[in-house]
Design a binder for these strands. Structure first.
Length: 491
RNA sequence: CGGGAUGUGGCCCAGUCCGGUCAAGGCGCCUGGUUUGGGACCAGGAGAUCGCAGGUUCGAAUCCUGCCAUCCCGACCA
């Protein structure tokens, strides 16, 4: 049994916090709302990052880097944009410290006040578009497709490790196009990239859709999003892609000459996913014993635990383990052979379960006599003995099976926890007693959306791509509606 | 920012009401030995300005004031 990990059924958020801590993923820093991502957690993020980075490059994007600081005046050039972010900006006002009057402390030097305050980027549209103005003159400069891996700061009032931190790591793509159609296609394409990543790598199914007007990104004409359902029945926005129209082009005066020499404003997109995906990964698969990782993102795929009496037995087991390790290495399967002498096998079993290592192999004297090994899978906790001969192939297949099983399990969960609802009573009932996604009709007004939010805390997560046209009545006002939208309580 | 709770070696925490050899215990860590098929055992050892800053007092982990942080519930959250 796990030591000290609260049960999900009793204290879900306590479980989450302890898991992040005990699986060695991250911890709180001394700075409010900011986290230290520890090596094991960062290794998972690096795996996510490298897969995404490759996908961005395959779809024609290049990486670049823009400054952390944004002049205050830039932020206010796009009205809706500044409105959306103003309340959560960190501001740099001075550039120097000096020794305080007591001779020990340091104080801000009042002489060193900046002429114009700098904003620590909450997102980089403004500073990037300021550069794009210089980079784009002709239709030959388009499309301009750039991605940046960076940290951003949003001064949130209440934070949770990975799910909402004041500083977080992310990537932000920023593209410029000659035509509206091309920009819309780009925004849609990148959402597909995200959805493909979450399903194929994170084993996390998502609902793709459009945000309602009131949930849109500040400065966007359209926000596309992927929404995932967590184990506790709450929704998590896992990624967004925005069609920005000509809003930033106009704000930063970015025009190009088309083939006929006519001046036009360029069309824009931006899109991003963040370390919040780490939270999504944890909340989707993990259990009361600890983290459960999909093999495609796990830093360690296989942990080998030797069980032995004395050096001689250990050395014999080591030979088998190293051979297996080498065979698996040829398939890029990362193996940890844990021959730590201080820890007993039971401790190691629990440890690798806590850390979500997909496959554990135990080899002891009994196995050495029989030429077998005990293989345990993290997802189902099943244990089975296999011959050492051909074990590498067995494990390789098992890892694929685990990846697939995790996705299927999550899909089943999502399906079972997506409820169609046709009236207000049922809506409140399902929300209260079952949770999850709710598909219901809505009259399309921000007013109704807001009232539902106030009364139930549920928000419209998105208007799903795949919701079919049908005649219906808004569950709140009874007014006619053409399609169902996706409601849920959200993180 | 409002309501509630908490803050004591790396971690979990006793002690705070009623000020005076109280800084206790468990986990972890270090050394040595015995162990190893589901979180081992014995012996020895190191480690604490009791969240921070003031104040009251002969004396403060304990009382008072302010601040900071964390957790839960709200507000907020492309």
């Amino acid at each position: 049994m796990a030591k000290g990990l609260p049960k999900r059924s009793e204290d879900f958020s306590g479980w989450y916090n302890e898991l992040v801590n005990k699986a060695d993923l991250a911890e709180h820093s001394d700075v409010r709302g900011c986290m230290v991502i520890k090596p094991y957690g960062f290794a998972i993020w690096e795996n996510m990052k490298s897969v995404l980075d490759a996908k961005f490059k395959q779809t024609g994007h290049q990486n670049a880097y823009f400054p952390l600081f944004i002049p205050k005046s830039y932020l206010s050039k796009e009205a809706a944009h500044v409105e959306g972010f103003a309340k959560e900006c960190a501001v740099v006002t001075h550039y120097r410290l000096k020794t305080g009057e007591d001779g020990k402390s340091v104080v801000v030097d009042p002489e060193a006040k900046l002429e114009e305050e700098l904003i620590v980027r909450p997102t980089s549209e403004t500073i990037i578009w300021n550069s794009y103005k210089k980079w784009i003159q002709s239709y030959r400069d388009l499309p301009l497709m750039i991605n940046q891996w960076a940290n951003v700061v949003r001064w949130e009032m209440r934070t949770r490790l990975f799910l909402r931190t004041a500083e977080f790591l992310w990537q932000e793509g920023h593209t410029a196009h000659a035509t509206e159609q091309e920009a819309v296609q780009e925004a849609e394409k990148m959402l597909e990239v995200y959805a493909d990543f979450t399903e194929q790598y994170m084993a996390m199914p998502v609902v793709k859709g459009w945000k309602t007007e009131s949930e849109r990104f500040a400065g966007a004409n359209e926000t596309y999003c992927i929404e995932a359902l967590m184990q506790d029945g709450k929704a998590l926005q896992a990624g967004t892609s925005h069609f920005l129209g000509q809003n930033f082009a106009k704000a930063f005066d970015v025009k190009f000459s088309d083939a006929n020499g006519k001046q036009e404003y360029v069309w824009a997109t931006s899109w991003g996913v963040s370390t919040r995906l780490m939270g999504a990964l944890i909340l989707t698969h993990s259990d009361d014993l600890g983290l459960v990782l999909p093999p495609k993102l796990a830093p360690i795929h296989v942990a080998i635990v030797p069980i032995y009496k004395g050096e001689e037995q250990l050395n014999n087991i080591r030979k088998v383990a190293v051979k297996l390790q080498n065979e698996l290495a040829q398939h890029n399967i990362i193996v940890k052979f844990d021959d730590d002498q201080q820890r007993k096998p039971g401790w190691k079993f629990a440890e690798y379960e806590m850390k979500g290592v997909p496959v554990r192999v135990a080899i002891g004297p009994r196995d050495m006599e029989n030429g077998t090994a005990e293989v345990a899978r993290r997802d189902t906790l099943q244990k089975e003995s296999y011959p050492q001969e051909g074990l590498a192939d067995k494990i390789k297949a098992l890892l694929d099976e685990i990846q697939e099983n995790l996705l299927n399990k999550a899909k089943t969960f999502q399906t079972e926890n997506t409820t169609k609802v046709d009236n207000w009573e049922d809506f409140k009932n399902v929300l209260e007693n079952k949770g999850g996604f709710i598909l219901a009709h809505w009259d399309g007004t921000a007013e109704t959306e807001n009232k539902i939010k106030e009364e139930t805390k549920a928000t419209i997560r998105c208007i799903p791509y795949d919701s079919i046209e049908e005649e219906g009545k808004c569950i709140y006002t009874g007014k006619p509606s053409k399609r169902r939208v996706l409601f849920a309580k959200a993180y």
